[in-house]
Design a binder for these strands. Structure first.
Lengths: 145, 145
DNA sequence: TGACGAACCATATATTCCCATGATATTACT
DNA sequence: AGTAATATCATGGGAATATATGGTTCGTCA
């Protein structure tokens, strides 16, 4: 069912390499590509990441709105600043300098599952986000009850 | 109907392992996963836990939404960004260092049934919670009478 | 030829698996 | 009923395995 569950803290080496959590890897291996699609999140200081399959899903949705976009296939989405990051033999990806600086990543990267996709955070920045998220959820819970 | 009833006090070993009460285990075994989904509670210093089946239910609901709309990102983060803990052969799960410190767990873990889900507490902190709850109930009783 | 990235290799660390023990409860038997 | 035999469960430790991580080498291309 859900592909990405849980939270994993991994190290980023000086080359920008970081291990993708091993349990998630099988969900990131398609028949033509093994790795992740990554782009800096529109709303938060984090990297949005997902399997190529998910991108196909997005593309289909887009195509329903405007069939002309079909010609651009994946490129149309990736062009918005995304990157295609393939695994090395050890299941790592390299996060480019620009990706890292966009989300203020230092020596540690926090992988946070979101069901069909996941995000990569600077742990400190995520803490902040999480408390905001909890506040929101708690407020909603109280309204509903 | 109610899957998780009762209170059980178990030990946490130095690896962070703890037995999940045996009578509850059958309710935590699905066809693709045997174990629990855990996250620190929104409102209390405790771990909220439930079967993966419950998560699948949520995923189905979320899948109906347009993936391009990110209205549910707080929800996805809180729900899927917790932890997925699978049983070992003896029916234990390991609680990570971070989970344990979040709820101030030492050598003992108290499992408290809540019907469809359950919570894991530091026994002392649960006592506090319980006396607060009783105080609250008692006050309310006196006002009403 | 030198910078860069990709592949390769080595090792520390973490996680999982496996078995042993003791405690408690349950059943069987006289 | 009382006692012995058996089963279930919680718990602990160590071995085996998987994973994360760091470094080196090898090509390729500018």
């Amino acid at each position: 069912m859900s592909d990405f569950i849980g939270r994993y803290l991994n190290k980023v080496d000086k080359k920008g390499r970081v291990s993708v959590p091993a349990i998630w890897r099988p969900n990131l291996i398609g028949k033509d590509f093994a790795g992740i699609i990554a782009q800096s999140s529109l709303s938060e200081q984090a990297i949005d990441a997902y399997p190529k399959d998910y991108l196909d899903l997005l593309q289909n949705k887009l195509d329903l709105n405007d069939p002309l976009l079909e010609e651009n296939e994946y490129e149309s989405t990736v062009i918005f600043g995304g990157a295609i990051l393939s695994f090395d033999n050890e299941g790592r990806v390299v996060l480019s300098e620009s990706l890292r600086s966009e989300i203020k990543l230092n020596s540690e990267a926090l992988f946070v599952g979101m069901g069909r996709r996941f995000r990569i955070w600077n742990p400190q920045i995520f803490d902040d986000y999480l408390s905001r998220a909890k506040l929101y959820m708690d407020k909603r819970r109280k309204i509903k009850s």
